[in-house]
Design a binder for these strands. Structure first.
Lengths: 297, 297
DNA sequence: ATTTATCCATGCAGAAATGAATATCGTGTC
DNA sequence: GACACGATATTCATTTCTGCATGGATAAAT
């Protein structure tokens, strides 16, 4: 009977295209995965990959086996999802993914309160602006700024996070305080939070500007926000985050009417999992309270 | 990420009901499987089995996982079937199951010739009158006396093996030679080859007899046939087998018109497997030749 | 043409899993 | 009630596997 560990490595190599990447995904090390593949080839009596400088290219014989290997992998992941909800106690870990901004400025208070209430629940935060794959269990719960579309996900709309214009007093003392949106054209704007959509928003207001209009651009929103705080420029920032920061002030320009929808999602297999539901409920409650209490201010 | 080896052991324990039986099926040893289960329970944080004197009884939590584990197992077996013919050489093993009679008296010549033709092909004979599971790969090729019904099997009807009445000269010298079927009622008949159907056959000829009519009954056809050869009684024997045995003679009674259909079957996943096809072809040819050359004699 | 960045293969020491032997427990039987 | 049987737990020596460090090879980039 075939060793299933070899098949798991086989699938990982097929998916990633190289021994090194497969090893990282499996939490192993490249020589181990290489030995797995070699052992599998010896057992089956047929070469499965052609070793190439860029990685391993599957042979036709290997491609014949991919479908079944993938079925195994999907079944294993489904089993893992179901198993994680098997325990009665809340003890265990829940992985939560959120954007860097949300993870940095909104989650800490909520997670702290949650951990006081249920110390047995461990929280792992995956702070990333890239979409994590809930189907592949990159995380248990995802907080996203758009509606999740996959059918197997349970999704809940928490609310809309409004954006407004903020700057540090030091900046305003140096450059003056803009009173209207049009005034912003003469100021240094730091690209934050969906810069592309902000550009479209400006266009809607009759002020088409090119991407280069932002004098400071940064792919990390947290860094950009720190620059606003430091007085490097003006930023369009999520109101619940900015209002908690005393070192900036909201500018008296018109409301830009732009908001980010906030969604919470998890895999439907995790629905009966009390631990995941507990965390999801606390996250949704805490985020909704912060969104609603600030946006009218 | 979960260790797939643990899941394989989990499935085996679910299927067999005990650590010991699971270990035997996996080619492992009971303490190893026990450790696998314990490690899986620790990883998942939930008990999966209740240890009982008769074995391990799955908990509800375990039953939730069975379906996915079985999907993994089925995918693994399908992969194994497809992989078994991956190499382009014929080298390798083919497991053939057949009834004890066929395996003992018809297969040896065929297998010998086959092995001369292709020494790289190893043959494993599973001589059993119990149905082996081709889906679970108990054997690669099955020779059966009835039509296989499972949809996933490739089946080929080889022909009908006729039955006739034989006895040893020593027996006939002692008890006389019956000339008609009716005369058999005064003789010692050894139950061979589907005794139940033979009884029904006698009833069709207007001679209903009870099961106890057979003075010597034996669940092993080979043993019964050896008794016929030794002169212990008269037997209804497969013609191709009996005609090759010089120590018995065919009795001049009417043709009983009874024949056993002979089928060859293998899993459709094995269809592209050159080795299995080779063995299947040689078996079908050899058996058909023996059936047809003898039945008219 | 040289450099650089990946990626795979190999040798070796340490860690982990395995198997054999044995102890223990509960059940069914005489 | 004593005993035998079949099952799971435990212990320990050994094998096996894993991970680290290093070498070698190829393709893209400067």
């Amino acid at each position: 009977m075939l060793d299933w560990t070899l098949l798991r490595s086989f699938l990982a190599v097929i998916d990633t295209g190289s021994l090194s990447a497969a090893a990282e995904r499996l939490g192993l090390v490249q020589p181990t995965v290489g030995r797995h593949i070699r052992e599998l080839e010896e057992t089956l009596g047929a070469p499965l990959f052609r070793r190439q400088p860029r990685g391993l290219e599957p042979t036709p014989a290997a491609l014949d086996l991919v479908e079944d290997a993938r079925r195994m992998g999907e079944a294993a992941m489904a089993l893992e999802r179901k198993a994680s909800g098997a325990g009665d106690s809340l003890a265990g870990t829940v992985r939560v993914t959120a954007s860097r901004m949300v993870a940095t400025y909104l989650l800490p208070d909520i997670v702290a309160a949650l951990h006081v209430e249920e110390p047995a629940v461990d929280i792992e935060i995956v702070a990333s602006d890239e979409t994590q794959n809930l189907l592949r269990r990159d995380a248990d719960i995802a907080l996203r700024m758009y509606e999740p579309r996959q059918a197997q996900l349970v999704r809940r709309r928490i609310g809309d996070i409004p954006l407004a214009v903020y700057a540090a007093p030091a900046y305003l003392a140096r450059r003056g305080t803009p009173a209207t949106l049009a005034d912003l054209l003469d100021h240094d704007i730091i690209g934050l939070d969906r810069a592309d959509e902000l550009l479209q928003g400006f266009a809607r207001f009759g002020m088409p500007v090119p991407r280069e209009w932002f004098p400071i651009r940064c792919d990390d929103h947290v860094v950009g926000w720190q620059m606003v705080i430091a007085g490097a420029g003006i930023g369009f920032v999520q109101v619940p985050i900015a209002e908690a920061e005393p070192r900036v002030v909201r500018l008296p320009v018109e409301d830009i009417g732009f908001a980010l929808p906030l969604w919470l999602a998890y895999h439907e297999d995790l629905r009966p999992n009390r631990r995941v539901r507990f965390v999801a409920d606390r996250l949704a409650d805490g985020l909704a309270r912060r969104i609603n209490s600030r946006e009218t201010r």
